[in-house]
Design a protein around this nucleic acid. Sequence first.
DNA 1: ATTATTAATTTTGCATTCAAAATGCAATGG
DNA 2: CCATTGCATTTTGAATGCAAAATTAATAAT
Lengths: 224, 224
Amino acid sequence: MSSSAVLPIQRRSLHDELVDRLRLMIVEGDLIPGSKISEKDLSDLFAVSRTPLREALKVLAREGLIELSPNRGATVAELTLADLEEAFPVMGALEALSGELACRAITDREVAQVRRHHEAMLEAYAKRHMPSYFKHNQAIHQAILEAARNPTLEQMQNALAGRIRRARYMANMSEERWAKAVAEHEAILDALEARDGERLARILKAHLSNKLETVREHLADAQL
Amino acid sequence: MSSSAVLPIQRRSLHDELVDRLRLMIVEGDLIPGSKISEKDLSDLFAVSRTPLREALKVLAREGLIELSPNRGATVAELTLADLEEAFPVMGALEALSGELACRAITDREVAQVRRHHEAMLEAYAKRHMPSYFKHNQAIHQAILEAARNPTLEQMQNALAGRIRRARYMANMSEERWAKAVAEHEAILDALEARDGERLARILKAHLSNKLETVREHLADAQL
DNA sequence: ATTATTAATTTTGCATTCAAAATGCAATGG
DNA sequence: CCATTGCATTTTGAATGCAAAATTAATAAT
């Protein structure tokens, strides 16, 4: 008997499914910031009633992805520079903690995995292939997060990442910034392989701070 | 025309009200950890239908105060030592950031307010009056949090505090631990008045770490 | 007496319905 | 012609209803 077949059958409630789908739509930009969300339109779109949809909206509001005003419905939350300037330092603190904890618990195998992502990321960088770069970049941060062995931290960091990630779709890195980010990633890998938690924490905090700077630059250009 | 009369009429949705009430009930221990929550019982209790109640439960589940399993309903989340060992370091990272940011933005007036709470706390400590001690203690941490001028951080820290605060109701400090906590608070005030963000961050992180130690000790005794 | 099986009851998940509030629109008056 | 008021339509908030799943109770079998 195949081992995967005996796993508990994955049953999800509609509302849970909706939360994930809507979050994805928002993060990926299918639902544009500031636009109004009609309960009817959305429930029609997903072919469910308004009840589970409304439950999902409440959850997403708590995550900060949408805004609810009483009797007036939901709108996709705008992502202003002010929001990002709030969120990035918090993310920096969380990532720093992740790094610190990860250095205590990460296995050699996991570090090797991170290294592979790192090298794939360098390759993507060499080709200036953004999607692949982002993918491996994110995988590295996720791996460090998981190596921290702290589900509470993981949950909070992922919630915040959902909000921030939308910025990726608007920010285009300058050549200079990109090079700097790559250099920082070298330092990240180095600290991780040395299991130097304190150093890794410092680097990650600075890394996030620089990411904010990148976004800031880009928004200054685009004057969004 | 009186100025307060023209303020927008404060309207709350039932679900929002329910979220707050239920959270309070859980944090204060009215709903005991591990116990099952019957939707019917609760909706009867509050004299509302199950619909807004269910919306509230979804939100609280996301906050980690209750657990939902499909078709099986909600239970009040248990607060195990393992949970606290996860949560406290995260809280430490967030408080450290609060302290760092607060030192940049806090006004003299606010610092004075913190000092007043600090002194009231010392008085409560002298009398070994726990409720008053907790109240001023919490006010200090909240004031630092607000002085950080970062609503995102505030939101995350408060969400996590909701989970941790339940531990307060079970943890009884030893005389020794209590003295140490008070000493740490002296250092906190000192760093704050000096606007030394880095130092305050370090102290707060250690402070939270010691709080966890306090809880750990207590639970070892009570073997909960 | 204990376990297995089945029926009855309860509880949950979701759809539908109804009421209240908000929005859009037309008519009226300036 | 524009602003304001009253009305119709739409949308949201919450209750009710109904089917599916789970839990409990009851019965039968070993």
